[in-house]
Amino acid sequence: MACEKAYVQVAGDLREQILRGHYVPGQRLPCEQELCAQYSLSRVTIRHALRLLTEQGLIERFVKRGTFVRASSPRKLVIRDGDFCASLLEQAPLVERRLRSCRTIAPTAQISALLRLGPDEKCMMFERVDVLGDEPLGFDRAWAPAKLCNRMDESLLLRLDFLFAWLRKLRLKISHTEQTIEAIEAGPVEAQILATAPKAALLKTREVVFTAPVKPVLVVDSFYRGDRLALNCKILKEGMRVSLSH
């Protein structure tokens, strides 16, 4: 087994065995020492793999008792107050962002209007997928004015805190964002990217980011798997804090 990301391969193998029913809910998995011998890997690598399966909600670990297959469905990761980056870093630090595409295009009329582009102005469009082990959690499709993307490279796009890192490079500050949220069914493209069934429940958000003085610089459409992610927002209204969950 290759050393690079060997823990992902181990986690994927164990996950497949759990999903196939080789290990059933409530059953104890082999101990770390047995897994080390089985995969010919170090204990550090095995622990990394088990941590990944824990973050995916497939197993539970107990001190002095061992590791067990969860008896219930995988837990959902909670996106708190629309902050996907901070929520993932807190609940699933092993998540990996992958770049699907990045290119300069002539924007649609809708995107051009949202970014307030001139008649012949182009934009950069990029798509990214967030994966936990081998399981896609969500993906986004974003557009930014091409003139602001000269200092944008792949390493920057792959950062979970991409927006703040990008704006720091441009020496810009966020003024505000406008966000819409809706529940949708997965179309063929979304189902293929997220490895889910057609018409599966998805959470879609559209966010338009503005910098001072009220200038739109980014439009982001994000698609989250409804079976793996939940949205929790707190709205302050007339002195009362209301929690909304999906």
Score class of each variant (00 low, 15 high):
122 K>F: 11
208 V>Y: 12
80 R>H: 07
160 L>E: 10
9 Q>L: 08
66 G>N: 14
137 L>A: 13
179 Q>C: 15
106 A>K: 11
193 I>H: 00
219 V>I: 10
45 T>E: 13
188 P>R: 11
219 V>H: 02
17 Q>G: 12
213 P>L: 04
227 D>C: 14
62 F>I: 04
75 R>A: 06
148 L>D: 08
95 V>S: 10
136 P>L: 04
89 L>T: 08
242 V>Y: 09
196 T>P: 05
171 R>A: 13
73 S>G: 06
3 C>Y: 10
37 A>G: 01
8 V>D: 07
48 H>W: 00
120 D>I: 08
108 T>N: 08
14 L>E: 11
241 R>Y: 05
186 A>E: 07
45 T>K: 10
102 C>Y: 04
208 V>N: 12
106 A>Q: 11
81 D>K: 14
188 P>S: 13
36 C>T: 13
148 L>C: 07
18 I>E: 02
225 R>V: 06
187 G>F: 03
45 T>C: 09
56 Q>C: 09
24 V>T: 03
60 E>M: 08
72 S>V: 12
209 V>H: 12
114 L>S: 11
212 A>Q: 13
144 A>K: 03
204 K>D: 01
119 P>F: 13
223 F>V: 05
10 V>A: 14
235 I>G: 08
75 R>W: 03
57 G>K: 11
224 Y>M: 06
81 D>W: 15
168 R>H: 11
56 Q>H: 04
72 S>Y: 07
14 L>R: 12
188 P>H: 05
88 L>E: 05
185 E>D: 06
198 P>I: 11
149 C>T: 15
88 L>K: 09
161 D>Y: 03
25 P>F: 04
159 R>T: 14
57 G>R: 14
14 L>F: 09
165 A>D: 02
1 M>Q: 09
153 D>I: 01
149 C>M: 14
114 L>A: 10
59 I>M: 10
221 D>W: 01
139 F>M: 06
141 R>G: 00
87 S>Y: 08
228 R>Y: 05
114 L>H: 04
47 R>F: 05
113 A>M: 02
89 L>E: 12
243 S>L: 12
79 I>Y: 04
156 L>V: 03
136 P>H: 03
219 V>E: 03
48 H>G: 00
223 F>A: 01
174 I>S: 00
